[in-house]
């Protein structure tokens, strides 16, 4: 479902050109669970951003579900993100003034989905995450683990094909981290493609496929 061909992304840092990604060829099938590991600055976050259409490659081609999304305009890219991609961030990125339920409903609101349907879907996902009594709480009234679970609920509420998680446990204690990973894996088991960027080998070890990136290039790509 994801095809990257000769993908490259360069940044200008000062007057020096840095190759954040160089010549990446990658093929990902629907429903795969992949961990992306590598030292910091190796380009793993850049890869995730390019996959999520937040960033554009300078070279190469990107096919998502058979569609060439390499050079879409901003509005089209926004539509693909809305419909096909769910993001989970290290720092949760919940809107502090909105309740948990409203944060989860945010993508549906941006997509213009009917408020009645929004409420139903939010309630369903809150129930399935055992957060039904937390719907009205604001983010600062939730624990870290709860916040990340709300963020995951927001990522899957539009029923995307891919979940992209960038260090999803980086800001959590071990127990909450385990809960969050189990939740992500549960959505993977339901058929969603899951990519987790991490530098924690314990977390990386849980996936079936491991990709290791060093200096912007894929160093190893193996199944376990």
């Amino acid at each position: 479902m994801i095809e990257l061909r000769g993908l490259g992304r360069d940044f200008l840092v000062g007057d020096q050109l840095v190759h954040a990604l160089r010549d990446i060829d990658l093929s990902i099938r629907q429903g795969e669970y992949i961990s992306i590991m590598g030292p910091s600055g190796s380009g793993k976050s850049t890869l995730l951003n390019v996959l999520g259409l937040l960033d554009r490659p300078d070279k190469g081609q990107y096919l998502l579900e058979g569609e060439d999304v390499t050079s879409l305009d901003d509005d089209e890219a926004a539509r693909i993100r809305r419909e096909k991609v769910g993001f989970v961030f290290q720092f949760f990125h919940l809107v502090p003034r909105l309740s948990a339920a409203d944060n989860i409903a945010l993508p549906m609101m941006l997509a213009g989905i009917d408020p009645v349907e929004r409420r139903e879907r939010v309630q369903r996902v809150l129930n399935s995450l055992a957060l039904s009594d937390r719907g009205h709480h604001r983010p600062d009234q939730l624990s870290g683990g709860q916040r990340q679970r709300v963020a995951i609920a927001r990522a899957v509420i539009m029923n995307p094909a891919v979940i992209l998680a960038d260090e999803p446990t980086g800001n959590l204690d071990t127990q909450s981290g385990q809960d969050v990973l189990r939740l992500l894996e549960q959505f993977n088991a339901e058929g969603k493609t899951l990519l987790v960027v991490t530098h924690d080998p314990d977390i990386g070890g849980r996936s079936r496929r491991h990709i290791r990136i060093v200096d912007g290039a894929i160093q190893s790509d193996r199944l376990q």
Binding site: D75, A78, V95, P107, L110, A111
Partner: peptide, 16 residues
């Protein structure tokens, strides 16, 4: 800024 970035990640176009 972070909120704007989030809204973009969640699928807001620049127009929106």
């Amino acid at each position: 800024t972070a909120e704007v970035g989030l809204l973009k990640a969640l699928g807001s176009s620049p127009t929106l």
